[in-house]
């Protein structure tokens, strides 16, 4: 049987942390055809502070480095603060060459996707 899934659903389905955790949200961006897929998971605690973050990345060294960097950067930030992380900061920190700028953009997108997932769940929970 083939499983038909969208990326967002898939992101929730395939979790890096073994334990189902209420505060865990996942963002997955990219596509294998483009050469990069990033999955970012954040664990959000009280007051919307990101307590932990993990990544899995299929991609070049710069993509792996970009996703690794954002897991460091988002920790201790609130989800709103995390959204302020811009790809230019990532690119600058890693001194990415122009051809690798898309890796930093993807990392920024991964944060946005994870936060969106968190908010969606939050709303879902509030509604439920």
């Amino acid at each position: 049987m083939k499983i038909h899934v969208t990326l967002a659903r898939l992101a929730r389905k395939t979790r890096a942390s073994p334990k189902e955790d209420e505060g865990v949200a996942t963002g997955m961006v990219g596509a294998p055809a483009c050469g990069d897929v990033m999955k970012l998971q954040i664990k959000v605690g009280k007051g919307g502070v990101i307590e932990d973050a993990k990544f899995k990345t299929y991609g070049c060294g710069s993509a792996i480095a970009s996703s690794s960097l954002v897991t460091e950067w988002v920790k201790g930030k609130t989800v709103e603060q995390a959204l302020d992380i811009k790809n230019t900061q990532i690119a600058e920190e890693l001194a990415l060459p122009p051809v690798k700028i898309h890796c930093s953009i993807l990392a920024e997108d991964a944060i946005k996707a994870a936060v969106a997932d968190y908010k969606k769940k939050h709303v879902d929970q509030a509604a439920g």
């Binding site: 083939k2 499983i3 899934v5 898939l10 990033m38 299929y58």
Partner: peptide, 18 residues
């Protein structure tokens, strides 16, 4: 993440990538 999906039985060709 792709390897992980495959291990979990996802057929990558059916995924609607962003």
């Amino acid at each position: 993440p792709l390897w992980e999906m495959v291990q979990e039985g996802v057929d990558l060709s059916t995924v609607q990538w962003a």
